[in-house]
């Protein structure tokens, strides 16, 4: 009997072991597919000119060099453009964070007439593709006059930060409908007793929000901030239409080839006309572009994933 029992457990152990092995292989494989585009970019970015033309060099550079980085760094005016891209993303994400949390709190905790209609409109703004309002919004900011309140001519806000600041501050920026939704779901889940205790102590709704609700909203603050920051930093269409296409990293990246061929003399000037070399330069530029958000993600990632578990984004 004892013998049977132990062999039974052995089989069970084997089964568990096999299962976790299969699971590990599966997860590693999927992770590899996700990381593949990034890895191949990193690999090429360290290759010298000879390696790039040599088809027998794959993955591991034979002539390891940092030259691509120095050229790309110069070619996209990295520091300058990075600062403006980061400033824009940071401004937008902080403003969206505040406005969406406030609005989400309003929807979650107060009864008022027309609440469900307004909330339906929040969802609607998320479903409508941003391309529908893209052109009218461009014209709106090009001749900005607040329905004629600011004079007939209006102001030209294109090329300034205002077309990003104004919508973000009023919870109607890029995908802000989603953030309002997340914030509302979070505040609905908070226990009533917290608020009631504050009211009994004589605090008004504003003070309650500031001193009781906001400090416990840590998880959604991380989620909304990270999403908003990353989406603004990565955004291309809105930014290209509303900024006049200069002074930000994505546009510098796009004109990298041209910039390098004017900045540098031979041999680099000639090398750029080789598609292999130009592509390696561009991929190096993309790594430089992605570096800050990967860095931020690595810092916030642990906290971010925990937050999602605790808040339960939907439902």
């Amino acid at each position: 009997m004892d013998n049977f029992k132990s062999s039974f457990f052995k089989i069970k152990n084997m089964k568990d072991y096999l299962y976790s092995l299969v699971r590990m292989i599966l997860i590693c494989g999927l992770c590899f597919i996700i990381l593949y585009p990034l890895l191949i970019r990193i690999a090429t970015s360290f290759m010298g000119y000879e390696d790039l033309l040599d088809p027998s060099v794959r993955w591991i550079p034979r002539n390891f060099t940092l030259q691509n980085y120095t050229i790309a760094y110069e070619g996209i005016y990295y520091i300058e453009n990075l600062i403006s891209s980061l400033t824009l993303a940071l401004t937008v994400s902080i403003l969206s964070l505040f406005s969406c949390i406030i609005v989400g709190y309003g929807f979650a905790r107060f009864e008022f007439r027309g609440r469900s209609i307004w909330f339906a409109l929040v969802i609607f703004t998320f479903i409508v593709p941003p391309q529908i309002i893209l052109v009218p919004n461009y014209l709106n900011f090009r001749f900005f006059n607040l329905f004629g309140l600011l004079g007939e001519e209006g102001f030209n806000l294109i090329g300034t930060y205002w077309p990003f600041i104004l919508p973000a501050a009023t919870a109607s920026g890029l995908r802000n409908g989603l953030f309002v939704f997340i914030a509302r779901q979070f505040f609905i889940g908070m226990p009533d007793s917290l608020e009631e205790a504050a009211y009994v102590d004589g605090a008004g709704p504003l003070k309650t929000f500031r001193t009781v609700m906001l400090p416990s909203a840590g998880p959604i603050i991380v989620i909304i901030f990270l999403f908003s920051f990353v989406w603004q930093y990565n955004d291309y269409i809105m930014t290209s239409l509303l900024t006049g296409r200069s002074g930000f990293l994505p546009f510098a990246l796009q004109s990298l080839r041209g910039t390098v061929s004017t900045l540098y003399e031979a041999p680099i000037e000639d090398w750029v006309s080789e598609p292999e070399f130009a592509s390696a330069l561009e991929n190096t530029g993309i790594i430089l572009f992605l570096a800050p958000i990967i860095f931020i993600y690595l810092i916030l990632q642990r906290y971010f994933i925990e937050s999602i578990q605790r808040t339960g984004i939907v439902g």
């Binding site: 609005v103 709190y105 008022f112 307004w118 104004l166 009023t170 109607s172």
Partner: peptide
């Protein structure tokens, strides 16, 4: 309630 959602109402109408 309206006070808290007022940013959205403004933004919704304008943008």
């Amino acid at each position: 309630g309206y006070f808290f959602i007022s940013p959205f109402i403004l933004g919704f109408l304008m943008f």
